[in-house]
Amino acid sequence: MSDSHATETRPVNVEGWAPGAFAEPVLAEEQHVHPTVWTYVKVALVLAALTAFEVSLYYLEPMLGSVVPPLLLLLSAGKFILVVGFYMHLRYDGRLMTALFTGPLLIAAVIILTLMALFLQFVPRVTMAAH
């Protein structure tokens, strides 16, 4: 972390230091790019298509079998990323914002999976009534 990028030519404010002179380049990368309305509509169309795919997988499960649950999780993850990336602007906001959200998200995912494992949800249940 160096302040070498600070230049003496910048105008100074009442504090006697140049605004932005001490900004951290790693963090300050919010780009003021706004996607167009058409981008938003395209994303909505993709979201709808993915949802349709998900629901058809549900009905095809008797045919496809155990490949369906991972596929469904993958598809919902795709929808999740689309909404977070485009509608919530994480694609355009700084990396710090993304870290603020994905860190907790990962911890939550680890806890869900660990608890499911501890409650034997990944062990085939032989005693359960056949459905």
């Binding site: 919010e30 906001d93 710090l96 911890i107």
Partner: peptide, 20 residues
């Protein structure tokens, strides 16, 4: 410091907490 807006930052921290 970071070029980030306080209110937007706090919303993301809140949403991180909501993830939990």
């Amino acid at each position: 410091r970071t070029g980030l807006i306080n209110r937007k930052t706090v919303m993301w921290v809140f949403l991180g907490s909501e993830c939990m």
